[in-house]
Amino acid sequence: MDQYIDIKVRVWRQAGPKAQGHFETYELKHVFQGASFLEMIDILNEQLVAEHKDPVTYDHDCREGICGMCSMYVNGHPHGPDSAITTCQLHMRKFKDGETITVEPWRSRAFPVIKDLMVDRGAYDKIMQAGGFVSVNTGGVPDANAIPIPKPVADEAMDAASCIGCGACAAACKNGSAMLFVAAKVSQLALLPQGKIEAAARAKAMVAKMDELGFGNCTNTGACAAECPKSVSLANIARLNREFLAAKFKD
């Protein structure tokens, strides 16, 4: 049964991209465990605003685990200590009375902090712009049922496609690698006949962009998949490697 708890929140405060950041600890009394983690931050911000202090800046939007906007590193885990959820789906019942909760932004060179807990994940968009698409223009496409796709293949593509681009994979990775993110998109499109045609070029272009943007090198630790809110599988990384190596050897 959900109770009311008193907690301390240790939050990373950083005024701007170049400013020196530091931790600030706030006490929150009487927080209902049925509240979501972000609602707890809302309560904290209301408290800060009431004290005429600067509220904690953080990214959030849909609050139902699909937009990929929320991005907090809570007690040593991206999206907090619960599995297969985003921060907005984390609830206060995961925490105990009297606990001190540490909240940090994603830390990765490719995701510079904008303010407090808000980071710039534009790098993921740039990777997508490099090749995360099928080159078809609007109109002039065949009938949707013209090419049958085996159900297991379509299902696997769907699982890869469920990535929400939140950045937890790179944030969790000790190497700051974006491999799972890239692999999910490359896999989805390589599995489907519509995307297969450009698969080689896509893999090369997206990996090149990823490297260029300063992400690290994957060492297959599996932290990304373990922390992925959508449980995107590590197997996608193997497929990306396969696609990429095949493309390179063909050249």
Binding site: V134, N145, A154
Partner: peptide, 19 residues
């Protein structure tokens, strides 16, 4: 629907491979 399938949207399919 045609456009989305061409873009690689993984719509649910039946065992025969059709949508």
């Amino acid at each position: 629907i045609d456009q989305c399938v061409a873009q690689g949207v993984p719509f649910a399919r039946e065992y025969g491979g059709l949508l």
